[in-house]
Amino acid sequence: MHASRTCLLPLLTLLGAVALGGGCGGDHAPTPAVDAEASAAIKARYEAARDQVLPSEAERRWEEIDWQPTYAGGLRASSDQQKPLLLWVMNGHPLGCT
């Protein structure tokens, strides 16, 4: 890929380069000690990225609604609870990928 990295330079600078060694081809020989510094760096990079990507509490408020995940299940619950059914349907399940 000949992609420019201009837009991600600040992010990658922040996250640093992946430093943990190891090639391909299955399990590696056990090492006598864990590289605590490398593990901490991976965790730090993960947490920084998580804070960038995960939606905020405000953005996730819709998940507080007690959604039934299927049409048929909604009909059954509507009858049982004697409430009208509010159905939201999308291309791609709204609780999954839309």
Partner: peptide
């Protein structure tokens, strides 16, 4: 969110339905 409390709420994928 407040208004939805008067309903049973459901979601689904429309392509199959």
């Amino acid at each position: 969110i407040e208004a939805t409390k008067d309903f049973v709420c459901a979601l689904d994928e429309v392509w199959r339905l």
